[in-house]
Amino acid sequence: MPLFFTQTLAILQKDLKTEWRTRERLSAMAFFAFLIVIIFNFIYEPGSPIIKTVAPGIFWIATAFAGLLGLSRSFAIEKQNDCLMGLRLTPADPGAIFLGKMLGNTLTMLILQALILPILVIFLNLQIAQALPHLILPILLGTLGLATIGTLFSAMSLNTRLREAFLPLLTLPIFIPALLAAIESFRAVLEGSEITDWLVLSSAFVALYIAACLLLFEYVLED
């Protein structure tokens, strides 16, 4: 296996292992996402039919906000004991570090979403059983998009004042097109309409930004 992928995999496994051992990040994210779903519910009349049309939005707002909470911790782990310096001392490709971190964040957020969906089903009385297989691809693409930009900016916000406050300010504006695609395709799947256009948009988004981040990550790590 080429060294690039060995390094990517090493980072990914390391992150998942630490996450699994502490479960700090994921439990905070899941609780926050749960709160968002509950609070959004109060905006509407109980049992109002409008809930069904806004459910995809609630799902993605919960994912994005709770995801950002987790993303802000992503590089904070590397800051402890100055591990980031240890990583930079190795001949590792900055792109491999980025990719490993990004995939770790994607997986964490996918687990988070697997927890949010049942909450939506229960509290908003959403029926998604038949639509579920068609939901997987748009959700995956949207999550990859969020993880890509979020990982880049998470590394950037590490050295700023107001670290946690800063990440959403950078990530959300850039994420808007992919977020729009994610919400709209979720809704379209529920309504049974066509989502090809949105999938094209989000795959292009993911592909371009992964490529850009692989190239640019070097400049973010540099000192």
């Binding site: 060995t6 390391k14 630490t18 782990i77 240890g86 001392l89 001949p91």
Partner: peptide
């Protein structure tokens, strides 16, 4: 590849075992 660096910061992951820490860095060095 030719430089080892020791500072007062350990550059180690607290939630991994000693062996896992070394295995991680070993893979990063290939």
């Amino acid at each position: 590849k030719n430089i080892g660096y020791i500072s007062h910061q350990t550059m180690l992951y607290d939630d991994l075992t000693a062996r896992e820490n070394l295995a991680f860095y070993g893979r990063m060095y290939g």
